[in-house]
Design a binder for these strands. Sequence first.
DNA 1: ACGGACCTCCCCCGCGCGGGGGAGACGATC
DNA 2: GATCGTCTCCCCCGCGCGGGGGAGGTCCGT
Lengths: 220, 220
Amino acid sequence: MPVTVLLVDDEPLVRAGLRAVLEAQADIEVVGEAADGAAVIPLVRRLRPDVVAMDVRMPLLDGIEATRALLRSVDAPPKILVVTTFENDEYVYGALRAGADGFLLKRARPAEIVHAVRLVAEGESLLFPASVRRLAAQYADGDGNRAARDRLARARLTEREGEVLRLMARGLTNAEIAAKLVVGTETVKSHVSAVLAKLGARDRTQAVIAAYESGFVAPG
Amino acid sequence: MPVTVLLVDDEPLVRAGLRAVLEAQADIEVVGEAADGAAVIPLVRRLRPDVVAMDVRMPLLDGIEATRALLRSVDAPPKILVVTTFENDEYVYGALRAGADGFLLKRARPAEIVHAVRLVAEGESLLFPASVRRLAAQYADGDGNRAARDRLARARLTEREGEVLRLMARGLTNAEIAAKLVVGTETVKSHVSAVLAKLGARDRTQAVIAAYESGFVAPG
DNA sequence: ACGGACCTCCCCCGCGCGGGGGAGACGATC
DNA sequence: GATCGTCTCCCCCGCGCGGGGGAGGTCCGT
């Protein structure tokens, strides 16, 4: 019997592409589609797919949250293949923590996409497929943002420091951050200094850039 | 005779999606694909498509540059339909200046994609299709970055101010920007002040945030 | 009971930043 | 020729920022 797949992506075009790629295979069948994470659980209950190909960035409920909700509330849950435009440390780790089984780049070649679906259906984990490593290498000899990603991945910010960085990335001053967190400005300065040191940033502007480049905060 | 289309996108998945959507129509035929802007011109010369569906962000040669090159070096050039993930003021204006005939969101519904291809093939301009306006409205009742986009769209930065903002968004200090542009630091301060005023930003951090949120600079 | 990580707050100090204002030079437009 | 926009440079001034220290508290694992 064929591998059944549920597609979850807010862009119809991506769904159509995945469907075209997967249905070209005799042993894979696309049994349904959803445009946002909130629609996934009832669909999974009804269709019982083997694999859910899940986009990360979606309205209402993102792929990470949807994965978490799915594994928590459905018994004998399907395998989760997280689909994203590029490897993003926060997403990768978030997806792993949420319990995803595989990770797939949208820019992967059709054969790799098919391969990924088959693998996770067989129970294999596909956390760092070749395409991800290839892309990482590609970015490595590129210019800068790979460095930003690495820095933030290695930075190991504490929870508080992460909060502060997020507020910095919203354009708040130290005083405003202090008010928001209900602490003193000197406290915020300490956190900011720690963030700058861990990120290797010279000033808050560079820290915010690193936050965007690494995907720690997302535009849009 | 059918409308012939050439697909240009670096992601095979998107190409497959467009192909699936367009080939479902009896009067549209996909005659070729290219994965980067550099491959477009010889393909157009050989295949003579009616419409080129062109991605904006591509390796080697982006969609804007490829459009410009195409219109400059091919006689009786095809209609150019610029395809992008979301409306981006810089891209829109860049595409218009380059001579694109239409603008299309990847997240548009299949029927809209088909409609857009037919329209530009007939010689119509499709600069602000309904899907763009709908998305804009969608973002409007969202949180913040619509505001950033608007600000930057209305800002009408001069060329120099745009250069300065780009360097700000790379984390350079005023002195470093001055060195890079071979001008005095006082000059840079003037440009920075102008940028802040036009963007309604309080400091360079907020300006950089606006640059990211509006797509003026792109992460990754 | 002890070290260690984390959050909290405090001091001093230098400096880059941004606001305010002004001004000269150039090109395009009218 | 006059006007306008743009790019260039200059002044003064206040202040937020970031570096350098130090120090108290809680909680946790050993």
